[in-house]
Design a protein around this nucleic acid. Structure first.
Lengths: 107, 107
DNA sequence: CACGTTGTTTGATGATCGTCGTACAATTGA
DNA sequence: TCAATTGTACGACGATCATCAAACAACGTG
């Protein structure tokens, strides 16, 4: 019962951009890029419920941005950096760099 | 009755990524980047209705990706490349380069 | 075995999205 | 002045989205 991971050639730009356009998911990707060690979903500090977390990880996986590998009761998540870099060179880095820029608060 | 254009400092990454995650809007941005000359909305060949076109241009404008300047009955649209490049360096170029890669069709 | 941990599934809710057609407004040109 | 052009406004529609709680499943440990 392993979940679907799209092969590299099928990664679609709109899906990737949509996956990255949610703040929670952007945070997940960001954390994963800072610490590339595969981590269980639960180790990500998001202020959403468990089921919402599951939802976001599915969106990221189906967009081809992460891999999820079952180990015991956990599911180790890692970033598909190589696939992303090959398919969309420079994109992930640009997004991650942009994500570090603080958002200006309107006065 | 001029429409709202967010100042550069307020451009938000999620909004920009969301704006780019729609194929029609991505096409608009792509055409604008190839031909930076300000163009009326109607000159973009999208297979959607007039009102849908208006909608997409509004999303792009409110995300801070384009400027719209009224000239007669037309509205000249141009890409806010400088603002985007300053706020999110490399992002637009990476997206545009990625957009040129053909999407693989599943067998 | 029983319990805690980890994550999924299901069903629901309210919001947003992409799309359309119709009607309208404003400008240009005959 | 009348008509064509260019774009917006207004609903409306079905689809998708982000979110939640509750129930469930699988694994590990006491």
């Amino acid at each position: 019962m392993s979940s679907y991971h799209p092969p590299r050639e099928e990664l679609a730009l709109p899906a990737v951009l949509h996956a990255l356009s949610d703040p929670q998911r952007l945070r997940i990707v960001r954390e994963l890029s800072l610490d590339p060690e595969p981590r269980p979903c639960g180790s990500f500090l998001l202020d959403v419920s468990k089921s919402t977390k599951t939802h976001h990880f599915r969106v990221l996986r189906e967009a081809g941005m992460i891999t999820q590998r079952e180990v015991g009761t956990s599911k180790l998540t890692s970033l598909r950096r190589e696939d992303l870099d090959q398919r969309f060179p420079g994109l992930l880095d640009a997004v991650l760099a942009s994500a570090e820029t603080p958002v200006a608060v309107p006065a």
